[in-house]
Design a protein around this nucleic acid. Structure first.
Length: 863
RNA sequence: GCCGGAGUGGCGAAAUUGGUAUACGCACCAGACUCAAAAUCUGGCGGGAGCAAUCCCAUGUCGGUUCGAGUCCGACCUCCGGCACCA
């Protein structure tokens, strides 16, 4: 499909939401991406570097609610102005490939994927308790409600019962986990770890306990239905220590026997229910609560009858919603037992080297639970078995007897994608009175959004108030029917957008398999780590689905991932009103401690101010916005500084003074070009026997080429800038009058200047292209001129003579000069001959001499 | 509470992965140019002692391994981030 002999490189950055303004975080992200794209291009790769818009979502709808503007027009306007900002920054995007999620030609394929997943049984609808953000009036997926706070506004999340569509991410739980092994080497360890934790696989066993109802005889042998409560445990070896079964308030058993419970039990169940709907406060630990239902459950291993409790600490959503309580070997159960005076029975002992298995009184109350692995005691025929062995054998035994089995559970849940929102991709489902739930036909896609809808901001689907939208024909029987009025989570759009860039105008498929096969997977992805468990899990899931559909042939969409740190600024607030004080902070007087942390801040008129470090943005009053910065300093300096100021993965506290340094540097380079301009125009070749000063300059040039190349290959952006500054200093120090420069000198300078220009180009492309046009005498641009990143020549980088430190007993005492390839015994001899060294060594025993070639000599003496 | 990561000048940070600690930049100080200022250029800039050559001490703290530790190991302290009763 694509005829290009160059190797391909797909450089991708996380697409922005078109809010209307770039912030400094974007600048950092997109500059880093552009540096890589330029570098690879200059290295001879066929580079794909696209950008698009994550243009569905809440702010557009908020603008519609607050200001009555049409979300589509608002969004399109914002795209135009933000594209302008990116262009002013000079980010080298292929604008022909630009996508925007809100356009029907794109979201058509969100719907296409949804229908595919519906066919595959990966999309389903159910009534469930969802995460709900009261502030945003919006549903959130588990990933978006991680930490109990809304990912968008940071407010606490509550729960709400809603019917909603899910995508079965759990079907790929194992693959999502195991796939991390494949990409681990190219992803930040923190992201990999967070994904592992999020997926949360745990190996254990299911055990069925038979429930006995009070007043009724056990229905063990009769033909009547037995009531079983299934428990998940990772510690089946502790089952003889169970003192109760604890179930969640929402557990089906609790529903089923509700009428037989005492009033006190019913009241407790309802109060636990209510508590769960409240926003979680993570500051205070929730106290354990519960009540004995009066039901009994039979421990299938011991035959013992255990009470069945309701417990507020048991989650219906994880495992089976029921646990066996083993207070002797589990912290939570221990706490629960202590509070309600339940018996604690130790059944595991830790082998102690001196005392052997300790003898424990069965009824003794322990001061704390023993959660370590060990050997079983008080466990009938299993006594003496080790934990490791029992975990497998007891589950196996349970399976044979029909009351349990080995089991694996996951923390990750299916992805709830229904949103009661207007500004999203409509879910292509039709409800028909006679046919039920009917998927829309592929040929009827896209299900298009109406131009507008009544916006209330109350969390109800605006589309449910637009009859022209929801009134439709059943795709099956053609009878009257109505459409689903919820739209999809916007994370659906960003799950596959970067595949669309490869084939942006395809009207039949999301993208053609062949074109995508050339460009994907993504070679380098750059974005914020706030998406570690949202976007980055979803897109991995989506890729596996696309593989199963047959659109791609690989499992993982992103080979290498770089997460850049936030750009933050110091924000000041009026202590009383809480109002933000405007940047620049010369209206603020600040006292700092030794570490530079603010201890006190006052406004110049004496008011006390609060302060905080916050994500930098103009609206927060803690920094300039990109447009102002480009106006004041220019795009090149802004880009250079943001790359130079700190390692890319570090948080960057904005500092206005530093950027002046970048401006100065670029001006210095420019002055050097002007100084040498005329001399550089005359062709020159290197001398056969060059003078020392030109050898020195060429050495610095080639050392710099190596440093910059290596740094960029390993995605370091601050150190190559430092190296370029050093090279610039070396060119400055080259004290030759341009008018009188000989051919050899002109050649060395030309090499240094050309190298500097091309290496600077990824960081500061405008001035670099300008300089390049002076160097080549035309204005076609570096790539069009076939320019390549300079190649490192090891023989030129090598020094004739290097300085080698000499240590005595590991302490630096002197330096010698020698050729880098000097043999060890030569270096040793030189070191011993050295005046200072011979003095220090005189009269002492030389025990040993360590020589590291071209590095150092260390003389170990005694006496 | 559990799990990660990080502590290097006044500040942002380098350090070829165990081999000259503090590159590069910011800020600051001094000098040159200027009537003056800005810009630019030159020099200085971890702490201590000394006229000096030079020496001693410094990479959060304490210990260890090693000829040699910012880097490896152990314990602790501090800060930042993640998770939130996951059975």
């Amino acid at each position: 499909e694509i005829d290009d002999s160059r190797p391909k490189f797909y450089q991708l950055e996380m697409l922005p939401y078109p809010s209307g303004n770039l912030h400094m975080g974007h600048v950092r992200n997109y500059t880093a991406g552009d540096v890589v794209a330029w570098f690879k291009r200059l290295k001879g790769f066929n580079v794909l570097h696209p950008i698009g818009w994550d243009s569905f979502g809440q702010p557009a709808e908020d603008a519609a609610i607050k200001r009555g503007v049409n979300p589509r027009l608002w969004t399109e306007d914002n795209i135009v102005s933000m594209r302008g900002q990116l262009e002013r920054l000079g980010v080298s995007y292929d604008w022909r490939r630009q996508m925007a999620a809100h356009r029907p030609e794109y979201y058509k394929f969100d719907q296409w994927f949804f229908l595919k997943m519906y066919e595959m049984g990966l999309a389903y609808k159910k009534m469930t308790q969802v995460n709900w953000c009261e502030y945003d009036q919006a549903t959130l997926s588990n990933e978006q409600a991680s930490g109990g706070l809304c990912w968008r506004c940071g407010n606490p999340v509550t729960k709400k019962n809603l019917e909603q569509w899910f995508l079965k991410t759990t079907a790929y739980a194992d693959e999502l986990l195991d796939g991390l092994d494949e990409i681990e080497s190219g992803w930040p360890p923190a992201v990999v770890k967070r994904q592992r934790d999020w997926i949360g696989r745990s190996e254990g066993a299911y055990v069925d306990f038979e429930v006995l109802t009070p007043g009724l005889s056990p229905q063990r042998h009769g033909g009547e239905t037995r009531n079983l409560v299934r428990v998940f445990t990772t510690r089946i070896d502790t089952i003889y220590g169970a003192n109760a079964i604890v179930i969640a308030a929402e557990h089906p058993i609790a529903e089923k026997f509700r009428d037989e419970f005492s009033d006190a039990v019913r009241v407790k169940i309802d109060s636990i229910h209510e508590e769960k709907l409240k926003p979680t406060d993570y500051e205070t630990e929730i106290e354990k609560d519960g009540i004995d239902t009066g039901l009994k459950a039979v421990n299938p291993f011991s035959g013992e009858e255990l009470p069945v409790w309701i417990g507020n600490y048991v989650m219906m959503e994880y495992g089976t919603g029921a646990v066996m309580s083993v207070p002797g070997h589990d912290e939570r159960d221990f706490e629960f037992a202590k509070k309600f005076g339940l018996p604690v029975k130790p059944v595991i002992t830790v082998q102690n080297s001196d005392s052997g298995p300790s003898e424990r009184d069965e009824s003794r109350t322990l001061s704390e639970p023993l959660t370590d692995y060990g050997v079983m005691i008080n466990s009938g025929e299993w006594t003496g078995t080790t934990t490791e062995e029992a975990k497998v054998k007891m589950a196996e035994f349970a399976r044979e007897k029909g009351f349990g089995e080995l089991a694996t559970t996951y923390r990750i849940r299916d992805w709830g994608i229904s949103r009661q929102r207007f500004w999203g991709s409509p879910i292509p489902i039709v409800y028909c009175d006679s046919c039920g739930v009917v998927p829309e036909k592929f040929e009827n896609l896209p299900v298009e959004l109406p131009d507008t809808a009544p916006f209330t901001g109350t969390g109800e689907s605006p589309l449910a108030k637009v009859p022209e939208f929801y009134e439709t024909k059943c795709p099956n029987c053609e009878g009257p029917a109505h459409r689903e009025t919820d739209t999809m989570d916007t994370f659906v759009d960003s799950s596959w957008y970067f595949f669309r860039y490869t084939d942006p105008t395809n009207e039949i498929l999301p993208f053609s398999e062949d074109v995508a096969a050339y460009w994907t997977p993504v070679d380098q992805y750059i974005g914020g780590d706030d998406h570690a468990v949202m976007h980055l899990i979803y897109t991995r899931f989506w890729t596996k689905v696309m593989r199963d559909i047959g659109l791609v042939k690989f499992d993982e969409p992103v080979k290498r991932l770089l997460t850049q740190g936030m750009v933050v600024g110091e924000t000041f607030f009026d202590d009383e009103s809480g109002k933000r004080v405007y940047y620049p902070p010369d209206t603020v007087e600040v006292t700092r401690d030794a570490k530079g942390k603010i201890t006190e801040a006052r406004s110049t008129d004496g008011k006390r101010l609060k302060h905080a470090i916050e994500r930098m943005s103009k609206s927060k009053g803690n920094g300039v916005d990109p447009d102002e910065m480009v106006d004041i300093y220019g795009a090149d300096a802004a880009r250079l500084f943001i790359m130079f100021a700190a390692p890319i993965e570090h948080e960057l506290v904005w500092n206005e003074a530093g950027i002046e340094g970048a401006v100065r540097f670029l001006q210095r380079v420019w002055r050097l070009v002007l100084k040498w301009k005329d001399a550089l125009g005359r062709t020159a070749t290197a001398a056969e026997e060059p003078a020392e000063r030109t050898r020195q300059l060429r050495r610095k040039t080639h050392q710099t080429i190596k440093r910059v190349t290596d740094s960029l290959e390993s995605l370091q952006f601050n150190t190559p800038v430092a190296a370029l500054m050093e090279l610039t200093n070396a060119i400055s120090d080259f004290e030759v009058d341009p008018v009188e420069a000989n051919e050899d000198e002109r050649h060395a300078i030309r090499e240094a200047m050309t190298g500097l220009t091309l290496m600077l180009m990824p960081f500061s492309p405008h001035v670099s292209e300008e300089i390049f046009s002076i160097l080549v005498g035309n204005e076609h641009g570096a790539i069009a001129n076939g320019a390549r990143f300079p190649e490192y020549d090891a023989s030129l980088a090598k020094a004739d003579e290097i300085e080698i430190p000499v240590q005595v007993n590991g302490k630096l005492r002197s330096r010698i000069f020698a050729a880098p390839e000097s043999a060890n015994d030569q270096l040793q001899a030189l070191a011993l001959e050295d005046e200072k060294i011979s003095e220090l060594v005189a009269g002492k025993d030389v025990v040993k001499i360590i020589v590291v070639p071209a590095r150092l000599v260390n003389i170990v003496v005694r006496g």
